[in-house]
Amino acid sequence: MYKFNPITHIIFDCDGLLLNTEKIYSEIDAEVIGRYGKLYPLTIRRKILGTSEMHTASVIVSELNLPLTAKQYHSEVKKLQKTRLENADLMPGVEKLVPKLYKAGIPLAVATSASMEGFEKKTSRHKDFFNKYFSHVVAAGSDPSVKEGKPAPDVFLVCAARFSDSPEPSKCLVFEDSPNGAIAANRAGMQVVLVPEDYVLEEDKKIATLSIKSLNDFQPEWFGLPSFEN
């Protein structure tokens, strides 16, 4: 059985981890990129996974040599996101794991690269779920306290500091789906469970404390938490 350093608090990423938005984001990017006669390669998808919206736009425009600025690209993408992201479902295992952690008395929060406006749009169908189980949300895309996006550690450090008892980073466990997010958690001094997208390379999974295929596979005892009641 796995056995890692015990933790007391948990921070969840959102896109691709709590919400099934990765496919929607990828389809939108592919559509906008296609307007300029280009394809959206996996190499770029891997590079930008988990990063801020403007960083994503800058990388895509630069690497594909698109005839527009990052700001213009971001604007085109946002227009499509406004209607499509509202349809996002919760990821497999979320409705099982999160309530069990909450019932066990473990403080939970969300740290996302999105803006708060984007977060609220994506979670509009699940507002009661997020309001009930998570003490707070830090949205790096609009929070002035977050100076740099992932893979910088800022969003996780700010999120940890906003728990009512401000735990030490080493007492926080992060759930992420992206290697960039895992790097950010490591830099914040936190352990991280990676639940990667299917196109993430095996070598990029090694930066996580642990990599699992689904949230359904998580066992609280691995990190010194009480076993779930059946």
Score class of each variant (00 low, 15 high):
Asn5Cys: 09
Pro6Trp: 11
Phe12Trp: 09
Phe12Ile: 04
Asp15Ala: 08
Leu17Ser: 03
Asn20Ile: 00
Ile24Cys: 12
Glu27Met: 09
Glu31Val: 00
Val32Arg: 10
Val32His: 04
Ile33Asn: 12
Ile33Thr: 13
Arg35Tyr: 13
Tyr36Phe: 15
Lys38Val: 09
Pro41Trp: 00
Leu42Ala: 07
Leu42His: 03
Thr43Gln: 09
Ile44Gln: 04
Ile44Pro: 03
Ile48Asp: 05
Glu53Trp: 10
Ala57Tyr: 04
Ser58Ile: 04
Ile60Cys: 08
Leu64Thr: 06
Leu64Phe: 06
Gln72His: 13
His74Lys: 14
Thr83Asp: 13
Glu95Ile: 02
Lys96Ala: 01
Val98Cys: 02
Val98Met: 06
Val98Leu: 06
Lys100His: 08
Tyr102Thr: 06
Lys103Gly: 00
Ile106Glu: 06
Ala109Ile: 02
Ala111Ser: 09
Ala111Trp: 11
Ser113Asp: 05
Ser115Lys: 10
Lys122Asp: 09
Lys127Asp: 02
Lys132Arg: 15
Tyr133Ile: 09
Tyr133Arg: 08
His136Arg: 12
His136Trp: 00
Val138Cys: 09
Ala139Asn: 13
Asp143Glu: 15
Val146Ile: 11
Val146Asn: 08
Pro153Met: 14
Cys159Tyr: 08
Ser166Met: 13
Ile183Tyr: 03
Ala184Phe: 03
Ala188Met: 00
Met190Asn: 10
Gln191Ser: 08
Val192Asp: 06
Asp204Val: 05
Ile207Thr: 15
Thr209Val: 14
Asp217Val: 00
Asp217Trp: 05
Phe218Val: 03
Pro220Asn: 08
Trp222His: 08
Trp222Ala: 09
Asn230Ser: 13
